[in-house]
């Protein structure tokens, strides 16, 4: 990789001070699982890395009964937190399935949410794709079996983060710090489609940092994440879904249904949510919602199989949240 200078930031203020406004020049280093691989392949060539493992690494209850997860919390720590598991199984199930034990031991919550896409054209130095400032999305006429089935491009990545999807389903808020102070962004507003932001995937400016994921009090919500994978480890899901269902008795009062690995951002389905609302939680209701979730999917040349996988993931996530058997 290209040589760079290194700053070991003690906390968020120092970290932000060491970052700069120019995209890609100064980059935060958390677990490094994604970033160092990008640097070895010369996709990222920063002049400076700012170690942000000094950000908050605590999982703490908030006064309103929710949970506040520091960006430097590792995926292992999150997956092993009994409190997080009890309150938000959708989140801990997703964390527990990321990559491999070695990746989860160093990979952080902030790093997982802000990792770059896995698209093999983006990751390959030889392809000057749209996201790297080129003029072509090679996936359109190329090998697009793992690409998006929702969205109108012009770039057809799927968002790579496993935690982004339950974050949106759980209506999390992200605390962001920058040179002029802090702001709070809804998880649902944090991720950006390529027509709005081609060179990044989020609203985060190059000199801003995600510092906390704040989850609202779970109340009587039932939540679950269900992933469909090609391999059981060392891999990203083909498609997955996170759901949060607020219940009164066994009737759904409100639902949030979000699919992952199907679009450039976590893909929320208002149609599936509407199909569930007011219904009793049965396999049939889950099926109807899953059908609604994939309505309007626009698969590419090689990935229409993902429509059925996404549908199954939604159905099973709902059934898992309901405590019904998934297979």
């Amino acid at each position: 990789m290209k040589s760079f200078a290194y700053v070991n930031a003690a906390g968020e203020k120092e970290a932000v001070a060491a970052l700069g406004p120019e995209r890609g020049r100064f980059l935060p280093l958390a677990g490094g699982m994604d970033l160092l691989a990008l640097m070895k392949d010369y996709i990222a060539q920063p002049d400076r890395l700012v170690n942000v493992k000094g950000l908050d690494r605590a999982i703490a209850r908030t006064p309103d009964g929710g949970l506040r997860i520091g960006a430097a919390v590792t995926l292992t720590q999150l997956a092993e937190s009994a409190e997080a598991r009890r309150m938000y199984p959708a989140m801990t199930d997703a964390a527990a399935e990321v990559g491999t034990p070695q990746i989860r031991n160093v990979g952080t919550v902030g790093g997982n949410i802000n990792q770059r896409p896995r698209c093999w054209y983006f990751r390959n130095e030889e392809f000057p794709c749209l996201k790297k400032g080129g003029s072509t999305c090679y996936a359109v006429d190329g090998e697009n079996q793992y690409h998006a089935i929702f969205g109108d491009g012009p770039c057809h990545i799927v968002h790579p983060s496993s935690l982004a999807v339950p974050s949106v389903a759980l209506n999390a808020k992200f605390r962001v710090v920058g040179p002029t102070g802090e702001r709070v962004v809804d998880a649902g507003e944090y991720f950006q489609m390529p027509d709005r932001n081609l060179f990044g995937e989020t609203v985060l400016a190059p000199n801003e940092l995600l510092t906390h994921v704040m989850l609202p009090p779970p109340g009587a919500a039932r939540t679950a994440t269900y992933e469909v994978r090609f391999k059981q480890s060392h891999d990203w899901p083909l498609a997955f879904a996170s759901v949060a269902l607020s219940m009164s008795g066994d009737t759904v009062r409100g639902a949030r249904v979000v699919m992952g690995a199907v679009a450039p951002i976590p893909w929320r389905s208002p149609a599936a949510e509407a199909a569930l609302t007011g219904k009793r939680l049965t396999e049939e209701a889950a099926m109807t919602a899953a059908d609604a979730a994939v309505q309007g999917a626009k698969p590419m040349t090689l990935n229409s199989y993902k429509v059925q996988i996404a549908r199954t993931a939604v159905k099973r996530a709902i059934m898992k949240a309901a405590g019904l058997k998934t297979v």
Partner: peptide, 13 residues
């Protein structure tokens, strides 16, 4: 006490 991939961590870290 935890396993890590030493290829994906900087020595300085």
């Amino acid at each position: 006490g935890r396993t890590v991939y030493s290829c994906s961590m900087l020595a300085i870290e």
